[in-house]
Amino acid sequence: MSAYWPSLMGGTLIGLSAGMLLLLNGRVAGISGILGRLAQGRQMPTNAAFVIGLMLGPLFYRLWSGAWPSVTITASLPVITIAGLLVGFGSRMGSGCTSGHGVVGLARLSPRSLAAVASFLAAGVATVTLMRLVSP
């Protein structure tokens, strides 16, 4: 159980961030939405500030814990490219990603977000399972 404390604490901070953004700015903490609006040049100051803050997060973690968070990427560069295209395209088409649908949407008990989470979890599980079967 103790192995999951950092995950639970990290999740709590993510929920705190979403709550802060909603109650103070009235905005949904959906990263694909924030990034999409930034790419369209909408609400530039606040969306840029959020993205800058997001990138500062690992630096604060480094200052606090003394080590960078681990990032282990095993996928090849072509796979990374295709994955990035799918994530960008799909998150816009589906109006959200793990944060907007997964955190804020589920907290709002939104039926749309519940359906979106079920869909991307099923697709993610299927993709990982298939890739492991093809090249173990």
Partner: peptide
Amino acid sequence: GSAIFGAGWGMAGLCPG
């Protein structure tokens, strides 16, 4: 859209945040 997103998420293990 969510299924396309999920496929990319599974391939790389990365999502936007």
